[in-house]
Design a protein around this nucleic acid. Sequence first.
DNA 1: TGAGGTTACGCCTATCGTAATAATG
DNA 2: CATTATTACGATAGGCGTAACCTCA
Lengths: 87, 87
Amino acid sequence: MDFRLLRYFVAVAEELHLARAAERLGIEQSPVSRAMRDLESQLGVQLFDRSTRLTRLTWAGQVFLGECRRVQATVEQAPRPRRRVSV
Amino acid sequence: MDFRLLRYFVAVAEELHLARAAERLGIEQSPVSRAMRDLESQLGVQLFDRSTRLTRLTWAGQVFLGECRRVQATVEQAPRPRRRVSV
DNA sequence: TGAGGTTACGCCTATCGTAATAATG
DNA sequence: CATTATTACGATAGGCGTAACCTCA
């Protein structure tokens, strides 16, 4: 689990739309779809309710989104030695 | 910057010895050495005082170590959906 | 049947391990 | 000269894009 999956997940969770999330991330749909699958697999939890479309976050997904935001905030708020780190 | 470099750095910062840090991480010295170089390059900051050995953290290194621990704590303390995630 | 998501496939980069090389104490 | 760190090099895994394919409203 790295910052990449975390960023991807936040984008998807907020957009609930792979194409828009992908656009926001500057990559294609395909890797985003795979990333979500991998993430759910790693966590052993389903993060989204899906029909064909992503309808909403599961409860686990909501909890995880909260965690991700905490992590991102921690990383971003931290005082940097000299330069900012791109997460 | 991902959790990998963060983990490597914490190990090295705590051990101040590449071989021990590498052992702790379950990999070889070589990638750890490269990781520290890459990290310093990314941050634009020297993290260690080095002679041939790593003698100690620079001030920037100490600050960064603090940040890393905060991030790790955030990740680890977060309530997990079902399963624990290995950072 | 069209909008949205997934899978297949090949490419490319990043990371690893082995091993050789430097440096200093 | 022994210990520790770095560099060189080849192998491999993982992430990406393109494009084909599936699925439900």
